[in-house]
Design a protein around this nucleic acid. Structure first.
Lengths: 246, 246
DNA sequence: TTGATGCAATGATTGGACCAATGCCCGGCT
DNA sequence: AGCCGGGCATTGGTCCAATCATTGCATCAA
């Protein structure tokens, strides 16, 4: 005989579960509008506050987005990579996750993407990538730092798209949105060095020399990896020093 | 001249921001207890419900955990990696993924994880994996299908954990979860074949023969890949036929 | 000593009321 | 005819007050 716990996690949780089910079974797809809060509360037989808490948590986890106003309401969302950054930030601050792990994961995924590029290197892809590097070069020369960084990050996204695999694109997106935050915190570097390695990488790609491209990217990312780990350690130390002084 | 929007996101957001600041500046560390909801509401001059919404979102994002009861309350947390899985899973699920892309991505990520295992193969890891396969073998023989599948999926999660990289674990978890839904739809297969390839894989791992292990896994996953793509195509066809008939 | 019981603290849920933002529509002005 | 502006309906946002539920602890009796 197996008894199931009753309401173990609170009402708002079971409300969220019900709505999630609707979405998971594709009875509702991104863009669809959920009933308004008052109707939901009535249908589920709970108070409006409970519905609100459920919707709020679902908003945070990227299941729905909420807009206010006359045409507002809760809409099924397709997910928000940005919320990842906040959670990752917390994990890193409390040492559950290290910079080391983050950049290592980036290295691994990126190299996997390059491997997946086999047989998919088209002229269109090459042109897109070249345009990106040209733009990045211009921004670097003009000293427009933030835009330059965005452009450099975009390069990796384009590469992922080139693999033709949506999953890799999504994972890359998520990783990049987290890394962007890291760069903001630790400071970006090596402006022209990035451009240089890009051209070498692209040259290999153009010649269909995947191994060469791969090792160039590996070299580049590993040097970035070392830099960030060091910068994070240094920042750590100054924070500790400041804490001790106080 | 740049004007900043006022209160664009509501009161609960600024409450959350204030509390986050307290935690970020390390005035509060994991384990510390926040004031109770009534006091917080009074101190901030807002309603208790606003405080609750703030705390709820912070719970989801891993800043605090909440317990109920006499010694309950909101406590500073060190983060919850599981939410990341949920968000990544949502990102994957909401896109129009093909079976092909899913299993290909699984192949890519899994092989990358095996590469990342270099220098990390411990006796403890081997033992954990062996236990998993033993269990899976038992469940397979007993015909307990659902549990067998769960155990087989768990193997990949354990492998990811063996890489020592939390990011890879999260990506694997999300991927597996999406994949599991697919398997439920298409039906699982090859019970004993999976066990066989597992033992071969582990044997390579035990001998520290990473390339051998890698190619065995590659062979196995590629055959799975073919099977699922085929099964999906077949299902597609019967659905079309059924649709035409109607 | 042990177990039951009551109490107090704290979160969980509810109901109802009102505020605020937003987009649409309609009427009046040019 | 065109447009502009104010009112209005819809919907989320906030607040208050009250009650329920859970949990740990202190108390007390066997």
């Amino acid at each position: 005989m197996s008894l199931t716990p009753i309401n173990s996690k609170g009402i708002f949780e079971s409300i969220a579960a019900q709505i999630r089910d609707l979405i998971e079974t594709e009875e509702m797809v991104p863009g669809d509008k959920l009933p308004n809060e008052r109707d939901l509360a009535a249908q589920l037989g709970v108070s409006r506050h409970a519905v609100r808490e459920a919707l709020r948590t679902m908003e945070v986890t990227g299941w729905v987005t909420m807009r206010k106003g006359a045409t507002g309401g809760a809409f099924v969302s397709s997910g928000r990579p940005e919320v990842l950054t906040e959670i990752v930030e917390r994990l890193m601050q409390s040492r559950e996750l290290t910079v080391d792990q983050l950049t290592e994961a980036r290295l691994i995924v990126e190299l996997a993407i390059i491997d997946a590029l086999k047989g998919r290197i088209s002229d269109a892809l090459l042109e897109t990538l070249e345009n990106n590097v040209h733009e990045a070069e211009r921004l670097t020369n003009e000293g427009r730092d933030a835009e330059k960084t965005a452009m450099n990050i975009r390069f990796h996204a384009l590469l992922a798209e080139g693999s033709g695999n949506l999953i890799l694109v999504i994972v890359t997106d998520a990783l990049m949105s987290v890394l962007r935050r890291l760069v903001e915190e630790l400071g970006s570097v090596m402006g022209h060095e990035v451009i240089r390695t890009r051209w070498i990488f692209l040259e290999h790609l153009r010649e269909n020399e995947l191994p060469g491209a791969r090792s160039e990217m590996e070299r580049h990312l590993k040097s970035l990896h070392r830099y960030y780990v060091e910068a994070a350690a240094k920042k750590e130390k100054t924070q500790k020093r400041r804490a001790n002084r106080a």
